[in-house]
């Protein structure tokens, strides 16, 4: 890669290369769009990679507990960008009353993981693009750009192909599907600087209102806002340059607490 490229150009080039490489290997692919800032940035890059016309479906796993602003954003841009949008839900679990009030762990598993499994089984996707980044969580540091999942969806992080010098293993066995992570090397601040440069649409939830804003969005039942006065992309960039609090700290703690509660309940506490 040329040293003359800016940091954002280099990230963009690399991501577009990965996106095209994956599509050349796996035709039956889809991009997961959670409608947060990362997957929307990924969608932007995919649009660029294919000159505005994405040749595969855009999959949204709908837990039905997303913020209303997320649904509005989805409808608006699916139409504006001409997306082949597939919305999938775990109808069975929802009909049985699954929700975060039961157990946040169980809810995430049933309404996200199981719903995704159902979609993969239904549409027979053999690769999925996801907008995860290494700096989101310690465990994601171990991720690969082309990351195999077995038939049970398990990620065996001890048994992954190395990706030295950006040489990717883009083959999967029949039982596996590949997760493709074109944004793996991006940082949260890169996403925002790129959003600014490209003028990518941003969900209003990310902007501060009454001293609070969402740094990470998903289900309204499980996301908490942070204290912030950042009302523009520039202010968000300044804020991120000056914080050492992890992006998903609120969400992770929530899940740990929920698991803790389950463990204590099993022994008669609470």
């Amino acid at each position: 890669m040329s040293n003359n490229l800016s940091h954002l150009d280099a990230l963009e080039n690399n991501s577009i290369f990965i996106i095209r490489e994956a599509y050349s290997q796996f035709r039956n692919v889809a991009i997961l769009w959670s409608i947060g800032k990362d997957s929307t940035t990924l969608l932007w890059l995919v649009r660029k990679a294919f000159f505005g016309q994405i040749p595969f479906p855009v999959l949204h796993i709908d837990t039905t507990y997303k913020f209303p602003e997320i649904y509005d954003f989805r409808e608006k841009y699916a139409k504006e960008w001409g997306l082949n949008l597939l919305v999938t839900k775990n109808e069975e679990a929802l009909a049985a009353g699954m929700g975060p009030d039961k157990s946040k762990f169980q809810c995430c598993n049933d309404l996200k993981t199981v719903a995704l499994k159902q979609a993969i089984a239904k549409y027979k996707f053999n690769a999925l693009y996801l907008g995860i980044r290494r700096d989101e969580h310690g465990i994601r540091a171990k991720e690969r750009v082309f990351s195999p999942r077995d038939e049970d969806f398990e990620w065996d992080y001890k048994n992954q192909p190395p990706e030295l010098w950006d040489q990717y293993k883009t083959k999967a066995t029949e039982e596996e599907h590949l997760r493709v992570h074109p944004l793996l090397g991006w940082r949260e601040i890169d996403i925002w600087e790129y959003t600014k440069r490209e003028n990518i649409p941003v969900n209003d939830l990310y902007y501060a209102k009454d001293g609070k804003r969402y740094r990470s969005i998903g289900c309204h039942t499980c996301c908490g806002p942070i204290d912030s006065n950042a009302g523009t992309v520039d202010e968000i960039i300044t804020e991120l340059a000056n914080t050492d609090i992890s992006e998903r700290s609120g969400r992770a703690q929530d899940k740990e607490d929920d698991y803790m509660m389950q463990k204590l309940r099993s022994l008669g506490y609470m």
């Binding site: 310690g138 465990i139 740990e256 698991y259 803790m260 463990k263 204590l264």
Partner: peptide
């Protein structure tokens, strides 16, 4: 030990 959640 108890209550340990995340292996890592």
């Amino acid at each position: 030990g108890f209550v340990s959640i995340d292996y890592e």
